[in-house]
Design a protein around this nucleic acid. Structure first.
Lengths: 233, 233
DNA sequence: CGGGAGTTTGAGCTATCTCAACGGGGGTGG
DNA sequence: CCACCCCCGTTGAGATAGCTCAAACTCCCG
């Protein structure tokens, strides 16, 4: 896999490759293969044998889990330069979720066997991977605590704020566009509620001028009002 | 820190030290300090500056998170030979939860700075830590999905089954004792419900002869009935 | 200019929480 | 050793947040 110098520089700033020098990254990347996948396709399905670790170069991916009875939960959204597939790839089982492409994607990937070899050759890589997982645990614990103790409107606020941090795109007038195709259904799956309740809550905030909604679109006009809402009364 | 040969052998089989040879483990452990803490005390509190990684040698620990409004969530129970404190220790922040000793404890600990050095000296250590965190992410995702999609009774079953796997003690007559001091309140915090609902559910199963309850005690008489209950109808 | 996917809104329902009161067992201090 | 007290558990009754189902509405796209 040949990368442009710009891409290498970008990668060297990502959590997975941080503190490695460009030459090493370049060497490491030799083993990777590249692939392009279009919107609405899947990179892998829940239950597939997990034998690859991916690095997203461009585009956007949504990882969802299906329950036995057909419900869905959105586990995470993946932005460029994040690694994914590692949870499964290293536990040598199957992917715990499906990876749906929500925006045309370029990915690099490597067999999990190669990954394990790489990590033992370049300790920093293993250390970085460890830290990435620590971060994930942190975030999951937060989401878990929210789900266990907070009501729906608070949880929805947290979901919106998290999306703002990860995918927020500031606009001219100071408001923030959540830059991804987000249906009410998706928000419901990320918050642990139903699309109806999401719709009602968004509608309420919209009528208060706190947000602006549209088809698969949310714009935060006054994020601070939302923050205040969850930060006690 | 000097360890007995038996303890070393035991440690060499734990996820954190696996595939390291005894001599290396012994060297690694030189840097650790040891400490004993009694039941009902705390090893650290939520919000403390997180600067240590711990290895539990004996006893039992419960990690809880307090929410802003005083509610509690039980994040995990720690059994001998598990490592903990790593989520915080590596993100150089504060502990995200408090560690309550539920049974007299012996622990080893090391400053997070030392940990980071060790991991870069012994790549396997970083790799093992990575895998441990992968496991944790896996478990948290499961718990998260449960909380988001399942009703209370299903969730309580899952909690009980998880406890069975982690702390189950088979008894003479084939039933399984959950070997830890577990109040209804604790179970509620682990399941995301209230102690009243837990009590009612346990009572129902007890009257059906599926379990046997007592003060801070649960014995699973017919675990398979519980399994069947959640595995669709 | 359909058609379908996404959204809104209403009305009724129910699983679960809340609050309150009582019961029991075991550990502790006298 | 005994009694008391406190913590844990049980149970009932009422309240409610949020779910379910149904129906209409609105874009966007081909």
């Amino acid at each position: 896999m040949k990368m442009t110098p710009e891409a290498l520089t970008a990668l060297s700033k990502t959590p997975f490759f941080q503190n490695l020098d460009i030459a090493t990254i370049s060497t490491v990347l030799q083993g990777f293969s590249q692939s392009r996948v279009s919107t609405a396709e899947y990179l892998f399905y829940q239950g597939d044998k997990a034998d690859r670790l991916f690095v997203l170069i461009s585009g956007q991916i949504k990882v969802i889990q299906n329950t036995a009875d057909g419900q869905q939960v959105v586990m995470r959204l993946i932005n460029p330069y994040e690694i994914f597939g590692c949870v499964a790839a290293l536990s040598q089982g199957t992917y715990p979720g499906s990876a749906e492409v929500t925006r045309d994607v370029e990915v690099l990937f490597l067999s999990s066997h190669q990954v394990s070899i790489l990590m033992q050759t370049y300790p920093l890589l293993a250390y970085n991977a460890f830290q990435i997982m620590v971060e994930r645990v942190h975030e999951l614990q937060d989401r878990y605590r929210e789900l266990a103790t907070e009501n729906v409107s608070h949880r929805l606020v947290h979901t919106l704020l998290r999306l703002m941090k990860q995918n927020g795109k500031p606009m001219a007038n100071g408001s923030i566009l959540l830059d991804l195709p987000l249906s009410r259904q998706n928000l419901a799956e990320m918050t642990g509620t139903t699309l109806y309740t999401v719709s009602r809550l968004l509608q309420r905030w919209a009528s208060q001028g706190v947000i602006q909604t549209g088809r698969e679109k949310v714009i935060l006009l006054k994020p601070d009002v939302l923050v205040a809402e969850v930060a006690g009364v």
